[in-house]
Design a protein around this nucleic acid. Structure first.
Lengths: 220, 220
DNA sequence: TAGATTGTTAATCGATTAACAATC
DNA sequence: TAGATTGTTAATCGATTAACAATC
């Protein structure tokens, strides 16, 4: 029943986490089944798009019934790789690194953070939310001895490219980049970069609140 | 020469901050002119797309020459609303709110953060990076007395919707939402929400590093 | 069975790319 | 002038939406 042959477009992939989130909420609210129509209404998508998206991975529903909330959620979680025991390390335990380690639920997304690295002697040797903080000097050695899937980059932008390179050389599969630079990787290494560009996000918002020259509604 | 009539698509808009960032870097490196071809190569886009994107807003280049780096940067900054003196307040001075206020360069993106709000008595009355922290109880009153364009939501997800509502009722034009929920606003209020969903981002990365069943390259 | 809703193909729409005349 | 590169229209490609037979 599975398909998953033809490359799935990035647009579809980026909707999967949203499906997952909504289905998780529905499940918590005790919903057992949902139709593509109802899910679409809740998420602001067309039912057609949802069915088309899921069709990329095979059929998870049942005609005349709809989708089982829990089953669909779990299937999507599986597709997203939530059950693969992914590991991560955090580079840079400044404000942002700290915030991520302490507040962000890596576990909910299938990741285990196993170590953090910094240059600041004041934090090296401490733990942040149970995660040990090592000197950045130990990074390369650490990567040799541990399988790390993702490096989280929360260092200042000027050192980000260097850190990226070391992570890639150490064999990580992906970079989660919070530094406001486009990382160019050592070629041909086949490492995926996912950027979280705060500035781009805020500027997009800036554009959207700026558009109407006259601030009184009345458009379209 | 300007156009800007037909709705500009969201895909184009989300590329504008990237253009702005790249042009800023080029300018810093001393570049004076650039062709759509060279810019495209640097950014991983086609020259055609760049010209088409800019065409949405009118012509900023010169045939046979290309684009003046500084002029184009400034024009795009203008389009993005960087010179409108936007103001913002931050709701929630936990790890993330703290990190944003201290590390994120709001000013570079045309925003002035004027206040922060929290429920914790330990931070109320203090300042974080020169920004005063008020009690959340004072929010509504504050919004009456100050023009605030954007509310930055870094509170726990369970209180985020309530905060959003209060901000919207207080007259903000946009919400920059870091809480991992889809905010549904009081209808018809015409407020823009820009989400920064860490979880969605990480799960997308998770998908991309999970795909090949066999971990040895060999794809194409 | 009748009703509902999916899986899946076909039609439409929009975004990207190509092409080229205009012009610096 | 000749060369370069844009502005802008046309062609292509891909993503979304519509339609409907399959089937629970």
């Amino acid at each position: 029943m599975k398909k998953e042959n033809g490359k799935v477009s990035i647009a579809v992939i980026r909707r999967l986490p949203r499906y997952y989130r909504h289905l998780s909420e529905l499940r918590q609210q005790g919903a057992v089944r949902i139709s593509s129509n109802a899910l679409g209404k809740a998420m602001g998508l067309t039912a057609s798009q949802i069915r088309q998206d899921l069709f990329c991975f095979g059929g998870f529903g049942q005609q005349g019934y709809g989708y089982n909330v829990e089953k669909l959620r779990d299937e999507i979680g599986d597709i997203l790789g939530i059950n693969r025991g992914h590991t991560a390390v955090v580079l840079g335990v400044g404000n942002l690194g700290h915030a991520l380690i302490q507040n962000f639920k890596f576990g909910n997304n299938g990741f285990r953070v196993e170590a953090a690295f910094d240059i600041d002697d004041d934090v090296i040797g401490t733990t942040v939310g149970n995660i040990p903080v090592y000197s950045i000097d130990e990074l390369d050695d650490y990567l040799v001895r541990h399988r790390v899937d993702v490096g989280v980059i929360t260092v200042p932008r000027n050192v980000a490219p260097l850190m990226a390179e070391r992570l890639v050389n150490g064999g990580v599969k992906g970079l989660w980049n919070f530094a406001n630079v486009e990382l160019k990787l050592p070629e041909a290494e086949h490492v995926v970069v996912e950027n979280v560009h705060f500035a781009d996000s805020l500027l997009t918002l800036s554009y959207m609140i700026s558009k109407p020259e006259n601030d009184d509604g009345e458009e379209e």
